[in-house]
């Protein structure tokens, strides 16, 4: 198990390889569909510091506001990443993001982007909203809450030992491509024998 502190550097990220199990600590930022569209179309500046050197989490959490105004994470697993395929590489380059956490993997445009920018794709366990919520120790802030709603807002999560697996690295390797191709071969074999 590799421990990685955020924000991080290109050098650290380039050391990671497909299959590595990693525990992330530091501040990560949630962004999903509306946020990605917004980042690419509007190129807002107020999120630059927040994103520089850190990791975007594809997640629409369930949140609870306590009486003192602070936020508590009720549930926070990853959402399907492929919907951000058209935006992801551009977002990473523009905002100097060193990785994304999500589920299901992403496509060739993002894979090329990871290689170019020096970033990785971390896969979290889909549906494991409680295990992952437990890794969030604090919620330092939120942006665009009113406009985008709870699931789509930019939430800052301070995490400790947030468990992920590298399934796409900065050297052009993708576990999803490997498993996708092998399973397709296996299916052809089964169908061919029918």
């Amino acid at each position: 198990m590799i421990k990685l502190a955020l924000p991080t550097t290109e050098d650290e990220i380039r050391k990671l390889k497909v299959g590595d199990e990693v525990l992330l600590s530091g501040v990560i930022v949630t962004a999903r569909d509306t946020a990605h569209k917004y980042m690419v179309e509007k190129r807002p500046d107020d999120i630059r510091d927040m994103l520089n050197g850190t990791v975007i989490y594809h997640c629409g959490p369930v949140m609870k506001q306590d009486d003192d105004g602070s936020w508590e994470v009720v549930a926070a697993g990853p959402t399907t990443s492929i919907r951000e395929e058209i935006y992801q590489a551009d977002v990473m380059e523009e905002y100097k993001v060193r990785g994304v956490i999500g589920k299901g993997g992403m496509g060739p445009k993002t894979l090329a982007g990871l290689k170019k920018t020096g970033a990785v794709y971390f896969h979290a366990i889909g549906g494991a909203s409680q295990v992952l919520a437990q890794a969030v120790v604090r919620v330092p802030g939120v942006l665009k809450l009113e406009e985008f709603g709870v699931p789509e807002a930019f939430w800052s999560f301070e995490v400790k030992d947030f468990p992920v697996v590298v399934t796409m690295d900065s050297h052009g390797e993708s576990l999803h491509d490997v498993i996708g191709a092998a399973s397709e071969e296996k299916m052809k074999e089964i169908l061919g024998s029918m």
Binding site: E21, V62, S129
Partner: peptide, 26 residues
């Protein structure tokens, strides 16, 4: 990785039940 993923899933099922919280945020 498969075993580790299923372990996490089982742990998550227990945490959700104990805390009456959503198993999945979606």
């Amino acid at each position: 990785r498969a075993a580790s993923a299923l372990d996490t899933i089982m742990e998550n099922i227990k945490l959700a039940e104990d805390g009456s919280r959503p198993i999945c945020q979606d």
